[in-house]
Design a protein around this nucleic acid. Structure first.
Lengths: 344, 344
DNA sequence: CCATGAGCGGAAAGCGCTTTCCCAAACGAG
DNA sequence: CTCGTTTGGGAAAGCGCTTTCCGCTCATGG
């Protein structure tokens, strides 16, 4: 009846308490293909309860040769983009009784590799990586090797929005979304555009910029090179880039920030110059927490939670012969931040 | 030279490749108090590299009797309040080479208990629980038992903002923060207050409400009972509560929403009625992502990242004889959402 | 009434490590 | 030169499970 004085109760304690063998206790309490007579099972279960027994997951993992841990690697858990993806992945994990191990790389590619190695050490069942999108080929190569080693040792991998490695991928249609957005903005009558682009090397940002340019081109418009201001992929980056554009760029009617948090920074910058009603701003992502900023942001809605779900589902499904990819579309949402140009 | 065809390379493979015993390989590659001759160490390390060996963390955990996993239980990772806390905890975890396992309970107390059990099974070194603040005594009791079992089996526990269980706690000064906020708002000339309170049973919300009432009382003011509208602890809850207050409550000059996301919902509600400049709104938390809403929110700044850091540090430090608590203060930040009453 | 096999409990092997214990060699002191 | 003492490699004992294999009991059928 008394709990082990040192450390947790083991299955052996339970077996002894119930007066059965270790094998039987294991079968009764932790499941097995084999049957155990109801009467004995009941006795074991009672013993387990009395001792407050919980199976040692490590030992189970060792014995079974697989774990119920999945790894999730994001760039910055504090960024709502990633926390929404994480929420989706965690929801699916919960439904499958998986434990999720998470790491935030703070955008350092070397950390990413380190975490994958660490998850390989944990013998995680699967890894989902969100947002590894540099064009640093050297880092990408090492990440690829590390992931390949992980897969060879029996793990599964999925990437979010990163087609550059031969593994399952949830592809976010950044380019297409930005193209659609450009078309809509052109339709609203804007002609003189600026773009607040992300830092060089960030592929997500680059795709959105390219898509936007394509969309404008289709409408016979374009973004003059000096109307593209680069900044960090966060609020302050948007703020700074907007100010730079105002001070050194051409006059613009409408600014596309490659994500919502940058757009919010841009609006703050415009407001500080008293221009917040003079220049239209559009973003990308449709971050939930930002749906109430004023003016309400025109943006491309990405189903972030779904993206997280899709990635984990992919990695949990039967492995395919070749890397699969699941494409997820964004949807343009026009709100007050781009009221349109009435005169045209 | 060739990697094991099935599964990952084991330490035994490395030992064989290097021509040493398992014991020596272990000492050379995974550290030990014992020395290994540099020449042999080098040989083992080379073999490990050649085989792309990574120690099986499960096996190490078994053999050593401890893991490098810490568990983090939050209510909703998508909520910026929790994602900031998680970021802080993860930062400290990284510095200590710990792996963090995270779970989002979606505010279901039973899930919380389930996850703790699960972490006990993992033999996690420590658990941090953020935001278990119901007054459901039954659930709290079961959680307490589960945590006690975890501690008896050698794990450490810290709670964030929950003094009701005898474990280490990071106490957030909700009450004091709300009290200070009330004092400042009274100082700004407001007299007729409303409160958008959280759901009944949520202690964080209750503390903030109580503190606010105390602060007003100190200034000879009060919140009439019918000016307290309850709502969920999220944006929509704030929105709905605000509308209810407008429609069924007394006229108010200033509304205190018990957290920032509710405040944002409230502002949206006011705006939908054309009252956004007529009623002042204050929040609590100072969520980073919401710093650019307009009007800029008066709120109580909580150092959320620090709170997460403090909790994990606490749980990693030497265990104390009795539960410790570390108190963290908020700081009132007055912004445009409470411009003050000029006439007074 | 005996051969057959289904059903189920138990002994023991094994998962991949760490660590204790043992032992040989090298070394320093008397 | 002898006798402790280090020093460092290797054998083996676990860590807490799962699972294979073995063997006993009982039901079944020819």
């Amino acid at each position: 009846m008394t709990e082990a004085r040192r450390g947790a109760a083991t299955l052996e304690d339970v077996a002894r308490e119930a007066g059965v063998s270790l094998a039987t206790a294991s079968r009764a309490v932790n499941g097995s293909t084999r049957n155990v007579r109801p009467e004995i099972r009941e006795r074991v279960e009672r013993a387990a309860r009395a001792l407050n027994y919980t199976a040692n997951a490590q030992a189970q993992a060792m014995a079974r040769g697989r774990t119920n841990v999945v790894g999730l690697v994001v760039q910055d858990i504090e960024d709502p983009y990633f926390s929404s993806i994480a929420a989706g992945a965690m929801r699916v994990a919960e439904a499958n009784r998986l434990i999720v191990s998470i790491a935030s790389t703070q955008r350092r590619p070397d950390k990413e590799i380190e975490y994958v190695a660490s998850l390989r050490g944990l013998r995680a069942a699967a890894i989902v990586i969100a947002g590894s999108r540099t064009d640093d080929r050297e880092a990408l190569g090492r990440l690829g090797e590390e992931l390949a080693a992980f897969e060879r040792s029996g793990g599964r991998v999925a990437l979010i929005s990163q087609r550059r490695l031969p593994v399952d991928t949830v592809v976010v249609a950044n380019r297409a979304g930005a193209r659609d957005l450009a078309a809509r903005l052109a339709g609203l009558g804007y002609r003189r555009f600026g773009v607040l682009a992300g830092p060089p090397g960030l592929l997500t940002a680059a795709d959105r910029l390219d898509g936007f340019a394509e969309g404008l081109a289709a409408a016979g418009l374009s973004v003059p090179p000096d109307a593209v201001a680069r900044g960090d992929f966060n609020r302050d980056g948007g703020h700074a880039a907007m100010l730079r554009l105002l001070d050194h760029g051409p006059r613009v009617e409408c600014v596309f920030a490659v994500n919502d948090v940058m757009a919010v920074g841009a609006i703050a910058a415009l407001r500080s110059r008293g221009l917040d009603r003079g220049v239209a701003v559009a973003g990308f992502d449709d971050i939930v927490t930002l749906r109430d900023v004023t003016p309400a942001l025109t943006t491309v809605r990405l189903p972030l939670v779904e993206i997280g779900e899709a990635a984990l589902r992919m990695v949990l499904s039967e492995p395919a012969a070749r890397p699969r990819s699941r494409r997820i579309q964004g949807e343009v949402v026009v709100r007050e931040s781009t009221p349109g140009v009435p005169s045209r």
